[in-house]
Design a binder for these strands. Structure first.
Length: 269
DNA sequence: CCCGTGCCCTGGCGGC
DNA sequence: TGCCGCCAGGGCACGG
C-alpha cells in the first residue's frame, strides 16, 4: 500500500508529467472516490491548471489555481497518463487536459478519496489540519509526551497519522525492528531513549525508501509503471519463516491491533 | 477525550 | 477444475 515513500515517488513522477496541464473536464465512471457532490466538483475543477503537486504524510495535494485537491490512494490507488486508449475496468476518475492527454485514477479496491478545498483554507480543514508531523519534522518532546498520554501498543501509535504522519504497515514493522522494540509494547512503557531510536529509525527507513523509489510488493506498484526497489531492503516485513538478518531467529507473524505484523522474537523487546 | 470494532471493496488464495 | 468463504488494510463513524 502506498505509504510516505511511495506517495512521494508518485508526487515526483506526476509533477514532472502533468504540472502546467489545464483540466478541461472530468469524468467519473465510479463517483464515490470523490467525497463531494460530483456535479459540483466537476464544475469547480473545470479550467483550473495544475500548478504544483505537494505531499503531506500519505496525502497527495494538487495545487490548482483556486483550489487544492487532496488525494489519498489508500491501498491500491494509482495514476496513469494516457490519451485515447480505451477505458480499463478499474479506471474510476479521468481528468482530461486541454493538451489532449488525460490522467486516470485506477483503484481496484475503490478505497481512495479525492476532495476539493479552497487554497485559502485547505491546510486548516479536515483531514490535513489533524495530521501529525512527519518523522523528519517531529518534535521529540511532544512525541514522547503523547506516547505517555496514551494506552495502546506502540505499533498502533506509529500507525496513527494524528500522532506521526507517513508510516503504514510496512514501514512501521521495519522501524520497530531497527529500533529493537516489540510491536506489542505499551506506549506508556516507551523510554525517552527508545522514542528517539524510533524516530531515528523511521527517518532512515523513509529516507532510504524514497531514494529507492518506494517498495513494490504484490500489486502495490506505484503510478505510471514505476517499480520501487526498497523491497530488497526489508528486514522483517513479509519475512515469516525466514531467518532474522541480525540473529538468525525465525521471523514470526502475529496480529497487533488487527494488523499483520512481522517480528523477530529475539531482537525485539 | 479515549479506545475497540466494524465498515468500505474486490482479487487472490486456501480448502474441499 | 470450480466454487465458496475469508483475508488484506487506512481512515473514519460509532458506541461504550
Amino acid at each position: 500500500m502506498p505509504e510516505l515513500p511511495e506517495v512521494e515517488t508518485v508526487r515526483r513522477t506526476l509533477e514532472l508529467a502533468i504540472s502546467k496541464e489545464t483540466i478541461s473536464h472530468v469524468e467519473a465512471p465510479y463517483q464515490k472516490i470523490i467525497t463531494q457532490d460530483f456535479k459540483w466538483f466537476q464544475e469547480k475543477i473545470k479550467n483550473q491548471t495544475i500548478n504544483r503537486i505537494d505531499r503531506m504524510g500519505k496525502y497527495l495535494i494538487f495545487i490548482l489555481d483556486k483550489d487544492a485537491m487532496i488525494i489519498h490512494l489508500r491501498m491500491e490507488g494509482k495514476f496513469y497518463i494516457k490519451s485515447d486508449e480505451p477505458l480499463l475496468k478499474h479506471e474510476h476518475i479521468i481528468f482530461h487536459f486541454v493538451s489532449g492527454k488525460n490522467l486516470r485514477y485506477h483503484d481496484v479496491r475503490k478505497f481512495g478519496t479525492m476532495t476539493l478545498l479552497p487554497l485559502e483554507t485547505y491546510l486548516d480543514s479536515e483531514p490535513l489540519n489533524r495530521l501529525g508531523k512527519e518523522p523528519k519534522n517531529i518534535d521529540m518532546k511532544a512525541f514522547y509526551q503523547n506516547l505517555h498520554h496514551r494506552n495502546i501498543t506502540i505499533k498502533q501509535a506509529l500507525l496513527d497519522q494524528h500522532l506521526i504522519a507517513g508510516l503504514g504497515n510496512i514501514y512501521v514493522d521495519e522501524t520497530l525492528f531497527r529500533s529493537k522494540i516489540h510491536p506489542t509494547r505499551n506506549t506508556s512503557s516507551i523510554t525517552k531513549k527508545e522514542a528517539e531510536a524510533l524516530i531515528d529509525s523511521a527517518k532512515k527507513v523513509l529516507e532510504k525508501a524514497i531514494e529507492l523509489g518506494g517498495t513494490t510488493i504484490r500489486s502495490y506498484t506505484s503510478s505510471l509503471g514505476v517499480h520501487g526497489r526498497f523491497q530488497n531492503e526489508l528486514m522483517v516485513h513479509m519475512k515469516k519463516g525466514e531467518p532474522c538478518p541480525i540473529c538468525g531467529t525465525t521471523i514470526i507473524k502475529m496480529k497487533v491491533g488487527g494488523r499483520g505484523t512481522y517480528v523477530c522474537p529475539n531482537c525485539q523487546h
